[in-house]
């Protein structure tokens, strides 16, 4: 099926494409037919910098299984980071990423 569902979340960080880094402030997450990956459906994540007015994105298309593994790996790495680095890995969002800034489409 084709899906119009998009989860949009504010993020803080940087992403690299080619040889250039860029600041990112938003991630769009959706599950639909991919454009490039040889899969029937894929979990896609587009990282954007909307604040800068950029229309470019850094994108990934993952199989559902690998996306879940990635999600688990992120949480596992954060848990280990919390043990070794304390609060830094618990999530200290900049003031610009306030909870009320969360939005979903």
């Amino acid at each position: 099926m084709c899906s119009y569902i998009v989860e949009k979340i504010p993020v803080f960080g940087s992403a690299k494409a080619g040889d250039s880094w860029r600041r990112i402030d938003t991630a769009h997450v959706y599950f639909d037919h991919p454009y490039d990956a040889p899969l029937d459906h894929a979990l896609s994540i587009d990282f954007h910098n909307h604040a800068a007015g950029s229309r470019e994105r850094v994108a990934v298309e993952l199989s559902a299984e690998s996306a879940r593994e990635l999600a688990n790996a992120i949480l596992a790495a954060l848990d280990r980071g919390a043990q070794e680095h304390g609060e830094a890995a618990h999530g200290e969002l900049p003031a610009s990423i306030a909870p009320e800034g969360m939005f979903h489409y």
């Binding site: 119009y4 998009v6 949009k8 639909d32 587009d46």
Partner: peptide, 16 residues
């Protein structure tokens, strides 16, 4: 301007 996949991502983000 942009590739078809980037155009699709923009269209999707704005609700299709």
């Amino acid at each position: 301007p942009g590739s078809p996949d980037d155009c699709a991502a923009r269209a999707r983000a704005s609700g299709g």
